[in-house]
């Protein structure tokens, strides 16, 4: 499980480092916005690339109104596995990454 996670995590990191354009903004702050993003992910081909793009991933935390939105503090983040457990995203991540579905 861990090797497989590492492999996917590295793949995601490479995609983002290579300049994959992700939808960082607008952040999904309202219930409607959250639902829109989740629906789009569900309707996509489900590939890692699409999840990163629609989820709005970055390799660094986004800060808004003095709140740092890092995976590390997100409710969907499993600290020890370094994993985003939101069923639609379901992706290995790093603590300092961020996405627009962040919630605390």
């Amino acid at each position: 499980m861990s090797d497989s996670d590492d492999k996917i995590r590295k793949q995601a990191e490479k995609l983002l480092k290579d300049g994959l354009k992700t939808e960082v903004f607008p952040r999904a702050y309202t219930q409607e916005q959250i639902q829109d993003v989740l629906t789009r992910i569900r309707q996509s081909d489900g590939s890692l690339e699409q999840r990163l793009i629609i989820g709005g991933f970055t390799l660094y935390p986004i800060e808004d109104e003095d709140i740092e939105q890092a995976c590390e503090t997100c409710m969907y983040y499993l600290v020890h596995r370094r994993y985003c457990e939101l069923p639609e995203l379901d992706v290995p991540v790093e603590a300092e990454w961020s996405c627009r579905l962040w919630r605390i």
């Binding site: 952040r27 702050y29 219930q31 409607e32 959250i34 639902q35 808004d64 109104e65 709140i67 939105q69 962040w102 919630r103 605390i104």
Partner: peptide, 14 residues
């Protein structure tokens, strides 16, 4: 709709 069994948040905070 969307409020049952879903934690309501404002900017990601409940």
């Amino acid at each position: 709709p969307g409020t049952l069994f879903k934690t309501q948040t404002v900017m990601g905070v409940p």
